[in-house]
Simulated scan of single mutants.
Amino acid sequence: MQNQNLNYILEIHKASSISKAAERLSISQPALSAHIKKVEEQLGSQIFDRSVKPLQLTEAGAIYIDHMKKQAELDKELEEKLSDLACLKRGALSIGGATFFNVSYLPNAIGRFVKEYPGIDISIIDGSMPEIVGKALDNEVDLFIAPSWNLDRRCCYEKILHERIFICVPPKWKINDKLAEWRIPPEVILSGGLDTWLRQKKQPYVDFSNFRKDPFILLREDQHIGNIMSRLFARHGFEPGYHITAEQTLTSYALTLSGAGISLVTEGTLANGNLKEFPAFYLADFDICKRDIYVAYPKQKYLSRASREFIVILKDSLGAVS
């Protein structure tokens, strides 16, 4: 009940409106209003100042939320410690990340984890990186997947893999004939033979300027892959002409396969994405087209045995691209 009270109050605080919060919570406004009024009666103080719009917390409300968050953290820590004593026969684990990270890096590890620890309930939470970090700091997420970009000092980061980032060119474009010397066969990447292929080439990295006149599929610059593409444009002194903007890497990959433009894709996506079709792959600017991926958690948080065991399995499952 205490967690429900906190969730209801936080939702009202986020929405600055009881009616909007009720809609998000899928309950009626009168029921939510009555629930909050009951909590306020028990507290002996108003949580929200209803005389102003948008709705605001009172000083008592802010104190109440802070106290309830701390209590929720203690309750969760107790649950995790008891789960540890039970040798992972029961418990829960929540893992967050951008949809792209969750799709690319988690499935194999989760499949192995649930076989070894069937009593642990797993929740996967998708969201933007700022949202996921916020949820972790609010004790709503145990672990999250993050790239080596804009790391939060309040969290611990354990490296799970290092990966290259490939330029993807529509497979039927004529420029692939011109650049055949630098084109990387998909089977080389998927078999783990890329390092050998690179050593056999005198100059394995294509000049990104070759694509100066071609259309691109872009991601936002506040996304890591989008930022890498922007750095490539800046280094080679040109801006994309015609382009399409996409929200997800897998969307940009599909658009490249359709012939719409050039995009970027990571080594981890190719290794773990169960992809059936492939564009033409190239590597460029080795110091830009790479990144590390981490599993992370708040520094002050008790790291449960379930979390520790999952990290071990996750690292092992991604060993092929580390």
Rank of each mutant, 00 (worst) to 15 (best):
N274F: 11
Y294T: 01
P298N: 09
A280R: 02
L275Y: 07
A296N: 03
N272V: 02
I293S: 10
A284G: 07
L275F: 07
R291T: 15
E277N: 13
E277H: 13
F281Y: 12
Q300G: 11
I288F: 03
F278S: 03
G273S: 06
K290N: 15
G273R: 01
A284I: 13
A280N: 06
I293T: 11
P279I: 12
C289K: 00
Q300R: 12
F278E: 01
Y297V: 10
N272A: 05
P298W: 08
V295F: 08
I288N: 00
A284W: 04
K276C: 08
N272D: 08
D287F: 10
Y297Q: 10
L283G: 03
C289S: 08
F281Q: 01
A280H: 06
K276P: 05
A271F: 05
L275K: 00
G273E: 03
D292R: 11
C289L: 11
D285A: 14
K299L: 14
C289R: 00
N274T: 13
F278K: 01
F286M: 13
L283C: 04
A280Y: 04
F281H: 02
V295I: 13
Q300P: 08
Q300D: 13
P298A: 09
F278Y: 10
K290A: 12
F281I: 14
P298S: 08
I293V: 15
C289W: 06
L283P: 07
A280W: 03
I293A: 12
G273P: 05
A284S: 15
Q300Y: 13
A271M: 09
L283Q: 03
K299W: 08
A284Q: 04
L283K: 07
Q300M: 12
K276T: 11
A280V: 09
L275I: 01
D285V: 13
P298C: 07
K290E: 15
F281N: 01
D285P: 04
F286D: 15
I288K: 04
V295A: 06
G273N: 02
D285N: 06
F286P: 15
A280L: 05
P279G: 04
F278Q: 02
F286I: 15
